[in-house]
Simulated assay, not measured.
Amino acid sequence: MTDLSQLEAEISGRIAQAADLAELDAVRVAALGKSGSISELLKTLGAMSPDERRERGPQINGLRDRAGQAIAARKAELEAAELDARLAAERVDLSLPAPPERRGRVHPTMQVMDEMIAIFAAMGFGLAEGPDIEDDFHNFTALNFPPKHPAREMHDTFWLPEDANGERKLLRTHTSPVQVRVMQAANGKLPSWIAAGQQPPIRVVIPGRVYRSDSDATHTPMFHQLEGLVIDRTIHMGHLKWTLAEFTKRFFETEAVVTRFRPHHFPFTEPSAEMDVQCDRSGGAVKIGEGSDWLEILGGGMVHPNVLRNCGLDPDEWQGFAFGLGVDRLGMLKYGMPDLRDMFAGDPRWLAHYGFSAFAAPNPATGLS
């Protein structure tokens, strides 16, 4: 016969001496496991006589229960001690700075557009906007595009299906239709909310999205333009040249910018010109304000008399100039982005590299972050 008191003392001693949960589990298996000492005693009950089973059964079962309770109590003690040790070892040092959080970035297109608007605002220009979906009159006819002009063809323009009146709207190919709307509003032909009630003299810039059926490293089907319009009684090409020369100096943040104007043709201006900036193309980068190369960056000219007439203004009384700049291309040039298509690919890695922080110190040239 096994001495239950002696066995209980041995098991209790081993439970108390267990230094960690692994040792305690070994004690549990040795006592209560399938082949444990207490489990082996329980197996002997079947061979006993009824009288012996009535006597020994409660004793062995009581030993099993007390051993299980002792193991559970010791496990709770070891778990609490282990938790205290972890808390002491893994204590948070509140004196350390918090880990950096990922923040959104300002897209280069929006950054450049804000820079351009800020520069022209400092020159006294207001802001005008118009719809992306235009009609033929505002996008072409009012701007002196003849009926068979290539820009009216399907390969260059996104035309929409005919409406109930048989008219086909289009996605505007430039922001110039807003010039028409501004001049019409100034002449009282349209509600004042379209151009904030502009009256001659007019001095506005017009930023926005435009659409053309074209796609390569320097062209995308949707891109951004900023146009300028000045209407007054004594405006001439000298005003246009000074305005654009001053803009390029502030935009590229250097007084060393050298510009030149070349004769060109645009249906809505006469005379028309393209403006180049002097640059250095050596070394795989374009550096503005140095070198002996030239780079065309914008076009403009004096508003064509036909455009003034189409907008209800008398060309014998009013004259002015207009110009247009590609926002995305100027951003590529200023900040060294090689492919225009990347600007619209939606890749967060690209934006993390080329994007701008909304919390950076203001740029002294524009007052923007």
Rank of each mutant, 00 (worst) to 15 (best):
L7R: 03
E8D: 09
E8Q: 07
A19S: 10
D20Y: 11
A22S: 15
R28A: 10
V29I: 08
K34N: 04
S35N: 14
S39R: 00
L42V: 05
L42H: 00
K43D: 09
T44D: 07
G46D: 09
P58T: 11
D65S: 15
A73V: 08
A73Q: 14
A73G: 06
E77R: 07
A80P: 02
L94N: 05
P99D: 10
R102V: 13
R102M: 11
H107M: 11
M113G: 07
M113V: 03
D114N: 09
M116P: 12
A118R: 08
A118H: 04
M123C: 03
D136A: 09
F137M: 12
H138D: 13
F140R: 02
E162R: 15
R168F: 09
H174E: 13
H174C: 06
T175I: 02
V178F: 08
V180H: 05
A185N: 08
L190H: 02
S192I: 08
W193V: 04
V205L: 11
Y211C: 12
A217L: 07
T218I: 00
P221K: 07
H224R: 10
Q225K: 14
Q225L: 13
L229H: 15
I231Y: 01
I231R: 04
M237P: 00
G238W: 01
G238H: 00
W242I: 12
R250T: 11
F251N: 08
E253T: 06
A256I: 02
A256K: 15
T259C: 14
F266C: 01
T269E: 01
E274K: 03
M275P: 01
C279K: 01
V286R: 00
S292M: 05
S292Q: 12
G299Q: 08
G300V: 05
M302Y: 00
M302W: 04
V307L: 14
R309M: 12
C311N: 01
G312P: 08
G312Y: 02
L313D: 02
L313R: 03
D314E: 11
E317V: 15
W318Y: 04
G324P: 03
G324A: 13
G326F: 04
G326S: 06
D328N: 01
G331A: 11
M332C: 06
Y335L: 13
Y335H: 15
G336A: 15
M337Y: 10
D339K: 15
D347M: 11
P348W: 01
A352M: 13
Y354C: 08
A361S: 05
A365L: 03
